[in-house]
Design a protein around this nucleic acid. Structure first.
Lengths: 226, 226
DNA sequence: ATTTTTTTGTACCATTTCGCATGAAATCCC
DNA sequence: GGGATTTCATGCGAAATGGTACAAAAAAAT
């Protein structure tokens, strides 16, 4: 029941850093690091989904006993939501720089998909896929709050890609009549398809081939076939 | 505990129709129609996934009590697999004619996506998405047999689309240097993305717009921009 | 009518699940 | 040190879960 792997989560609260070192809390010190515990919970939820992940599993994985879990995160649903928020924050953080970068379109796409593959294929017990896709496909999507988060994640990705393609058009990397929105949806669809295939244990090499083919088509308008 | 909605499943065993009417079984007649029961089970699994669907739910939905369920289909996992097989059979049957049709590429794609949307958006309690995607995203994918089925479903769709695009190339609807495999993966990806978005309750109109944009891009090579 | 065969319906079992109550433990403040 | 405060750890309990035993029921075969 002791937390191993207490790697500092790199940035618990990057902004408005109150209490940077030791806030000197009053009672018994907690035996867990909320951030790493949430990470473990996220890992479990990603692997097994909401319903198939029990509090016992979560307790074992986080090193927290059930009452501590409950006190720290609330009930299972709340923990799931917090896990999902953390996932989105991390994924967004990993991609936001690239989406806003100055590099040419093709290069940005390559970087985005590389990160996506890294995220989807990591995991000790098999590839983990995309949590947004997992959640959308699970029964959790019947929960309006969770569904709203899924929708937000989906359109957020669409918008980021659309921004990319719009910038590329302005730079002349794509012809003026290219449909940035349609290309963005295709780019998102490629994200989704590799997330799904990763879960089915399609090897990375194959996924990379799919990504490459998709990029070729999406960037094709840049170099008209004739 | 009585099965309503005993609509004839249109074709229980279309081929090799043994015992067409009354095989005169020997014991007490069963109070359920295996085909409609399996359909109900499929509906439940599609809505809630494997883990969140209990035998009580299945029993209530099928009108069969638990021992009958067990006797007819085996345990929960076996029932899930049978449900998935049925789904795949139906989806394949709905699409196979179109994939092999003589119509021009664009028209065939339109028809395929129309059917996909019909499948994914139907359901009394919300859109149901694609069972293959659902299964891939669920914990059921850790089961090797189920994973193999998922993989088969994914590559089956890829191949069907690839065939479409290859035929289109031969007919001159696409330039000779078009990458049929890459286009097929994009076509599958479009299927996947609308399945996911349907679960998030994106309205049909929006999904149709996504499909249209994707088709425009995929068929773009047919009419080179210049 | 009796037997045989198949299915139904009820009830049950062992296990798991989620959530919480309760008391012990560890730390800070005085 | 004593009290206050926060957390840990054990474990309970009610409900749900997957699966099954067993007898009654319904039909055909004899």
């Amino acid at each position: 029941m002791v937390q191993k792997n207490s790697k500092p989560p790199s940035a618990a609260k990057p902004l408005a850093a109150k209490a940077p070192a030791a806030p000197k809390r009053r009672g018994r010190p907690r035996a867990y690091e909320p951030d790493v515990a949430l990470g473990k919970a996220l890992d479990l939820f990603r692997r097994d989904g909401f319903a198939a992940t029990s509090l016992d599993d979560l307790s074992a994985a986080t090193g927290m006993n059930r009452p501590s879990l409950y006190g720290a995160f609330g009930d299972k649903r709340a923990l799931y939501i917090k896990s999902y928020q953390r996932y989105r924050d991390e994924a967004r953080a990993a991609m936001v720089d690239i989406f806003g970068a100055e590099a040419p379109l093709r290069q940005r796409l390559e970087r985005i998909y590389k990160i996506a593959l890294d995220i989807y294929l990591s995991g000790d017990s098999g590839p983990r896929g995309c949590f947004t896709v997992m959640t959308a496909a699970s029964e959790a999507v019947s929960d309006p709050d969770i569904r709203a988060m899924v929708l937000e994640g989906l359109v957020g990705l669409d918008k980021a890609f659309a921004f990319c393609f719009r910038v590329a058009k302005e730079r002349g990397e794509l012809p003026g009549d290219a449909d940035a929105t349609a290309l963005a949806h295709l780019a998102s669809a490629t994200i989704h398809t590799i997330a799904i295939r990763a879960r089915a244990r399609v090897p990375r090499k194959d996924l990379e081939a799919i990504v490459k083919g998709a990029m070729d088509v999406m960037c094709a308008a840049a170099a008209p076939p004739k």
